[in-house]
Design a protein around this nucleic acid. Structure first.
Lengths: 100, 100
DNA sequence: TACATATATTGATTTTTTATAATATAATTA
DNA sequence: TAATTATATTATAAAAAATCAATATATGTA
């Protein structure tokens, strides 16, 4: 497993760390877990269920959206969030990718 | 892949996010990659090769050591760092663990 | 149209991280 | 033993992230 000899450019390092950073927060993980359990779901239901502030919820969702972890789709006056499982899988492999 | 219905306690959420946080930094990833490529290696070689400050190197190594990602072993006046691949593997799976 | 609801955005503040520089400690060597 | 080397630690400054409160923007509804 040691010594991949693959030289990673800072672009990939930044991508990997950004992706992991988006997930490296207990509240965001909790939100993600909730979306996972409910499928596409709107902000209202998320913050009511988890008892967190609307504004904070939107902000964390935005961070995860920017990182590509979740996807937002407008549905009337609601916005439905869902998980991009491909990207999450990529995050899982982000470490593995440059380690062995 | 959706809806694991596994309820994660905040302990696990915190562990997962802490582990990911330790890796969610470009410089730390770079250091980890370097250790991976060279096996057990001391601080001096790391910061000379990567052209970063000694103090920063020690600090980042400490963060990864606290998270259990790397292991330090004293060797005379040197300190040799190596990767704990088990923990890294756990980090890879941290996301997967609560998603699907 | 006026009002209510859902979400996003913004600005101010606090907290956490990171970087820098200096110093401390321990081991080594001249 | 004095000087050098390797690493850690500490204090401080700078930067980034998180929280909170308020406001803005849409959309839907009475």
């Amino acid at each position: 497993m040691k010594g991949t000899k693959v030289v990673f450019n800072s672009e990939k390092l930044n991508y990997s760390s950004e992706l992991m950073r988006a997930l490296a927060h207990p509240l965001r993980l909790k939100i993600l877990e909730f979306i996972d359990q409910h499928g596409a779901i709107n902000v209202n239901k998320i913050y009511h269920a988890l008892k967190i502030e609307q504004s904070i919820t939107s902000q964390h969702l935005k961070i995860m959206k920017m990182a590509g972890v979740v996807h937002a789709e407008k549905d009337g006056k609601f916005v439905s969030y869902s998980i991009d499982y491909d990207v999450v899988t990529r995050a899982e492999k982000a470490v593995k990718r440059f380690l062995g």
